[in-house]
């Protein structure tokens, strides 16, 4: 197996699509498709954290499931660590599962309540038939310690732990096989604020220590700002903006990103009436029948006729900052934030 240079692409995705057919009628013929993911191109470099951000229905979770090959892509390609895994069968995929792991949102439902922590965290060793130097128990206890849990709790059951601790158990299980890539789907959104910060810091520490690469799927822009090196903003199955974190948060260029940031409440009551807000009206349209051309045009305050006719390509406006918009926002003159 090749080990790419740091800085090289560990994962690259091009033209990725996932359409779920909709069947109706007497013979259940296909009458349409939910275009959950509709043409994604991006690459994730070894050692970085890439975030996929968007609102519900934007396809970010489906993307995560495609990357980990829990779902079969309709079109496009996924190359991981030099292997084309786009259409690998489950059995051919199995050896690669060691290298690609997933963290789930809900620490309550993703752990089997009838198994002890030791069994849960040690499961990957058994499933992948990996030999451990000093036995599975020792390895599991090391993992528990790594994620900040008491190794003596090896024999406890998930219900004896709090939400944050359960998420740590989930993370320990993920780390068992020393994966190269971790896809984390909303890893902190079910946790309390004070616990969220603990888990965010833990993820950062583990990345430094174990040279992990993360793809984080999240809806919370302020959380993403803390974990991600690069951020991809999704809307109705497509990428609207992809940029380095600092560049994106300093100067979002796509109107949707601007609106998304503007909607985040600011914990400063004295300034609440002074803020310029952009309020999107209405809801995200159905991915079954997305608007033509630029999908955001139905809710965009800058929409022009061209937005309804031509789909804007994702183009690099400044180095490392790609935007899919006919009328991107200007970069404001540099002013100190806050």
């Amino acid at each position: 197996m090749s080990t790419p240079e740091p800085g090289g692409a560990l994962l690259s995705v091009s033209g990725l699509r996932k359409h779920f057919p909709v069947r109706r009628g007497l013979i259940r013929h296909t009458v349409g498709a939910v275009k959950a993911v509709d043409g994604l191109d991006f690459a994730v470099t070894t050692g970085e954290t890439m975030a996929l951000v968007g609102e519900s229905g934007c396809g970010k979770t489906t993307t995560g499931r495609l990357l980990t090959r829990l779902l079969e892509p309709t079109a496009g390609s996924i190359v991981f660590d030099g292997h084309d895994i786009t259409h690998l069968s489950q059995s051919r995929m199995r050896p690669l599962r060691r290298d690609i792991q997933m963290i789930f949102q809900d620490p309550y439902s993703s752990l089997n309540p009838r198994h002890t922590v030791g069994t849960i965290v040690g499961a990957p060793y058994r499933l992948q038939k990996v030999r451990t130097e000093h036995g599975v128990k020792r390895a599991v206890q090391e993992l528990l310690e790594l994620v900040g849990l008491n190794p003596e709790h090896y024999n406890r059951y998930p219900h004896e732990f709090s939400g944050g601790q359960r998420q740590r158990i989930g993370i320990a299980r993920t780390l068992a096989l020393r994966p190269k890539l971790i896809v984390a789907d909303e890893p902190v959104s079910a946790l309390d604020v004070s616990i969220q910060a603990q888990v965010i810091n833990l993820l950062a520490d583990l990345q430094d220590e174990l040279e992990l690469t993360y793809v984080v799927i999240a809806h919370d822009l302020s959380v993403v700002r803390h974990i991600a090196d690069r951020v991809a903003v999704m809307y109705l199955g497509t990428l609207v903006e992809l940029a380095d974190r600092d560049s994106l948060y300093a100067a979002p260029r796509h109107p949707y990103t601007v609106a998304l940031m503007s909607a985040v409440p600011i914990p400063e009551p004295s300034r609440r009436l002074q803020r310029d807000r952009i309020r999107l009206t209405g809801d995200v349209p159905s991915p079954l029948n997305p608007p033509p051309a630029c999908r955001f045009h139905t809710r965009c305050w800058k929409a022009q006729p061209v937005c309804r006719q031509t789909e804007p390509p994702l183009v690099e406006l400044t180095p490392g900052h790609q935007v899919a918009c006919h009328f991107p926002e200007d970069v404001p003159p540099a002013t100190p934030a806050g």
């Binding site: 709090s162 944050g164 601790q165 309390d192 604020v193 004070s194 616990i195 969220q196 910060a197 603990q198 965010i200 810091n201 950062a204 919370d220 822009l221 302020s222 959380v223 700002r225 803390h226 974190r245 600092d246 948060y249 940031m261 985040v264 600011i266 914990p267 400063e268 934030a337 806050g338």
Partner: peptide
């Protein structure tokens, strides 16, 4: 203080680390 420190915010410069409250409720 703990709640404010553990909260990631968009309106401030990004801090390298959040300041979580240790332990659990």
């Amino acid at each position: 203080w703990g709640l404010l420190g553990s909260m990631p915010r968009l309106d401030r410069d990004r801090s390298e680390r959040l300041l979580p409250i240790p332990g659990t409720p």
